[in-house]
Design a protein around this nucleic acid. Sequence first.
DNA 1: AGACCCATGTAAGGGGTTACATGATTAC
DNA 2: GTAATCATGTAACCCCTTACATGGGTCT
Lengths: 210, 210
Amino acid sequence: MSLPHAILTALLEKPSSGLELTRRFDKSIGYFWSATHQQIYRELGKLEQAGHIRALPSEQPTRGQKKDYEVLPAGREELAAWVTRPEDPRQIRDPLLLRLRAAAVVGGADMEAELVRHLELHRTQLAGYLAIEERDFPPERRVSREDRLRHVVLRGGIELETFWTKWLTDTLFELTAPALDLAGEQTPAPGPPPGPATHPDAPGEPSRDA
Amino acid sequence: MSLPHAILTALLEKPSSGLELTRRFDKSIGYFWSATHQQIYRELGKLEQAGHIRALPSEQPTRGQKKDYEVLPAGREELAAWVTRPEDPRQIRDPLLLRLRAAAVVGGADMEAELVRHLELHRTQLAGYLAIEERDFPPERRVSREDRLRHVVLRGGIELETFWTKWLTDTLFELTAPALDLAGEQTPAPGPPPGPATHPDAPGEPSRDA
DNA sequence: AGACCCATGTAAGGGGTTACATGATTAC
DNA sequence: GTAATCATGTAACCCCTTACATGGGTCT
């Protein structure tokens, strides 16, 4: 039940039409909640029926005409209530991890190209987030509560992509490196894993305290 | 389209009944692909109809009786094909990040307790993964291709949970700390964020290379 | 007139979540 | 015999994804 609240949030920041919302979901909001235009139109209809939003007045005919929505007080209250409602984190459900596990069972498949491809995608995404951070969150924009909240959300995206690039890099290294200790030198030492950019820091054992 | 492949993987590792699969999904497989027993029974039916698995012979009546399934060659082929099929990473879709963003818009809500709660959950999950790593992946179990694959998958879970605990710790600190540079000292310095465990290292700027 | 974009929408199907139903086995 | 547990299943609902449909405007 998060999509309606994502839309309410976006509409509170700026009243918009369905397509404008779609574009904004492709940009800032979509960094942590993606949605297609079909989802958005359907949800806009529901929200309007529930009395949470309304279409701004316009004399145009309905079909093919832009329709702007704004949030009503009931919608704002619903959003405020949802923000404080506890909700457990979701279970991990990642196809790439699953495919690696399956590869261990069926054998034979070399997933290196796919891992490199994902690494590139995550690197690109990470670069995009960092550009946004530099543009929108200079130190003086990290003071107010609102700015800080927005910034930590972006930080979440940045650190998630950092995790993926690091894990993919380590995984590529692990899967292409020879068995160091048990077998002497069967394959030529592959060095750092493939991929255009530099190698991040060493794996780094997480603390065993918890 | 990943659930059937998750089931095929689990069945290749060991033929099982629906409930056994459910339990295994609550343990090792569920670390990267969760599923309920209803999903699993429905999917087992589909896989059997598709000729990918079959129920091991048994003279029992159908209702309430254990039914073990095994993978047929067609199922193994389907799984091997799926492993090499490219598939883009999913978009982020995280309710907690969304709620923080919404909190910036509606204001007033203090999410500190919720953040602490999530931090505890992720710490527990992380500790569980680390215990598995220590038990199942000593250095001598990281040699064969299969073991390495299984290990990097677990590493993914470990580092994901590490990311969450770090981000939550940083976020709690950021949201409870006073405005350092612009406002002198309005609130008593809160020190490290709440929560039982120690504070990990500083935020740590990721490299700006990409 | 045709191509192209903007904007809103419908339809079908897959997948996940929650609640409930039913039969068999075991323990008290 | 009643309760608890094991085991399999049904039903309803919601969400997401993909493909397609329709109408309006603009450019050439």
